[in-house]
Design a binder for these strands. Structure first.
Length: 470
RNA sequence: GGGUCUGUGGGGUAGCUUGGUAUCCUUCCAGCUUGGGGUGCUGGUGACUCCGGUUCAAAUCCGGACAGACCCA
């Protein structure tokens, strides 16, 4: 492996590209742009993230389903705005064997049009509602811009939850539940985020409104991690999803969706990583603890046995632990495990054996110390918990310092900007053009604010956020 | 959609102008050495994207395909 040569603060893009390769999260050599291979280490992070998502969705009575990948063109075209939003970026299957298909099929860019014809069959009466489903699948979008591992790809691993409700209010309460699910998942990744209602021109094609989940990165960048949509009856009408209400009348359901992708992995890399490599929160670290034995001539056997015992003790207690028994210098191992972002390193040598201790080093803040061997198992558990807590605290602190409130467009700082905007598209577009930023939207959760629109001067009592979108 | 450029061992590169033995670093493998922050030595495996053309001879020149990067709409 080559050295990390690029510093995160100097060239973020290069740094990111380098780190995902050095840490061996992905193999970018697959010969299709934007379709990368998940390597074992990267895939484990994704799988654990998926598991947390599954846990929360199951706990809120969502049912996991799995719909086909192919969608007939006839279904795909049922919702006019939806097709308009996606037609430039779907892959089409036009042939089967030697035959040209009468009706083309697209690879799902998202699954509304695959699921909703079937939902129309599943939903008959109000007692079938709410219908709460989700699936964890891959989806395909033909990106023409520069691709980037986990962040902008053409085959996207994601989860999507789709729900149907009797009323708009019930659908609204689903949106609120999604925020709770989101918060729990994000805690495991130690990622902070904004919840911003997107502008009319940026909402999901076909949605009534869209709330974006945005994570702040360096220098005023933001990365959209997910979105929560309220559809009202925009899809249930074209797909004819109706239920018979208590009074015997037929009504269209109100729908919501919530989705997040493999960007969660990319964002974990981008947000926590540093110049030494990855920094993984213990909850999603494939290896939480690595043991590096310090082997001195003549004492190899004794130290190795003690290291194996330590590994077994930790493993038994439920820690994901790895004993690095390769024949390499310890210093070289330290560098390698730091690149891979292992949260906690334990060192065990002759000196420690004599003193009844185990040395440790914490990845995210570089602190070092030692545990008593007798209490190491408990100490490791509480250290991992402490790391999660501290990483979350500092993450949210970073979010608050990533924002600058401005009252004019003169020399805006390189931060995520917060300002007054009247809500008119013409003013919004002008702000975007002049700052070369993207308006992310207005906070879903009301913030105390009062200012004038940066363009027309009209008063407003809600702030708008804008950032360099990645 | 229009244009510019690029493609050499697993990774990064030199060589291409002016055609003739493919360079160096790293990784990997073996052995010795070393061992609390990137040990050192010796040896080894491994490459010119593909198809066609020109030529005695092509990584090098020409044409095309494929893949990628960048710029413009």
């Amino acid at each position: 492996m080559d050295d990390m040569v690029v510093k995160k603060s100097e060239d973020f893009s290069e740094w990111y590209n380098e780190i995902v390769e050095l840490a061996n999260l992905t193999d970018k050599r697959y010969p299709i742009k934007g379709m990368n291979v998940w390597t074992p280490y990267g895939w484990k992070i994704m799988r654990m993230t998926d598991e947390f998502i599954r846990e929360e969705l199951d706990a809120t009575n969502h049912q996991e389903v799995c719909f086909p990948l192919l969608i007939p063109e006839t279904e795909f075209k049922k919702e006019a705005d939806h097709i308009k939003g996606f037609d430039s970026e779907v892959y089409w299957v036009t042939h089967a064997g030697l035959n040209e298909l009468d009706i083309r099929m697209c690879l799902r860019p998202t699954s509304e049009t695959a699921m909703y014809p079937i939902f129309a069959l599943w939903v008959r009466s109000h007692s079938d509602l709410p219908l709460k489903t989700y699936q964890i699948v891959n989806t395909f979008r033909y990106e023409t811009k520069m691709t980037r591992a986990f962040i902008r790809v053409r085959e996207i691993h994601f989860f999507e939850s789709h729900t149907c409700h009797t009323t708009e209010e019930d659908a609204q309460s689903q949106v609120e539940e999604d925020f709770v699910i989101l918060e729990k998942v994000m805690r495991h990744l130690a990622l902070p985020y904004f919840l911003l209602t997107r502008t009319e021109w940026d909402k999901f094609p076909g949605a009534y409104y869209t709330v974006g989940v945005d994570c702040p990165l360096l220098e005023g960048r933001s990365l959209q991690l997910g979105s929560i949509h309220h559809y009202r009856e925009n899809f249930s009408k074209p797909f004819d999803i109706k239920y018979e209400d208590v009074d015997g009348t037929l009504k269209h359901v109100h729908q919501t969706t919530f989705g997040m992708s493999e960007r969660l992995v990319g964002c974990t890399v981008a947000f926590h990583g540093d110049d030494k490599g990855l920094v993984l929160p213990p909850d999603v670290a494939p290896i939480q603890v690595v043991i590096v034995p310090i082997l001195a001539k003549g004492k190899v056997e004794e130290v190795m046995v003690a290291a194996q015992r330590l590994r077994d003790d930790l493993k038994k207690s439920g820690v994901r632990v790895h004993l690095d028994d390769k024949d390499e210098r310890p210093g070289s191992k330290f560098y390698n495990w730091e690149i891979k972002g292992v949260p906690l390193r334990l060192e065990l040598g002759q000196r420690d054996l004599a003193e009844g201790k185990v040395c440790f080093a914490v990845r995210h803040d570089g602190t070092k110390g030692s545990f008593l061997r007798a209490t190491t198992v408990e100490d490791v558990h509480s250290k991992l918990q402490e790391i999660m807590r501290v990483m979350n605290e500092s993450a949210w602190k970073r979010l608050s310092t990533a924002v600058a409130t401005i009252d004019s467009l003169e020399n805006p700082p390189k931060k995520i900007l917060r300002f007054g905007w009247c809500g008119e598209e013409s003013c919004g577009r002008e702000i975007e053009t002049r700052t070369e930023l993207k308006i992310l939207g207005t906070p879903y959760i009301k913030e105390a604010f009062h200012a004038k629109c940066l363009i027309c001067g009209k008063e407003t009592d809600k702030p708008t956020y804008a950032a360099r979108a990645m």
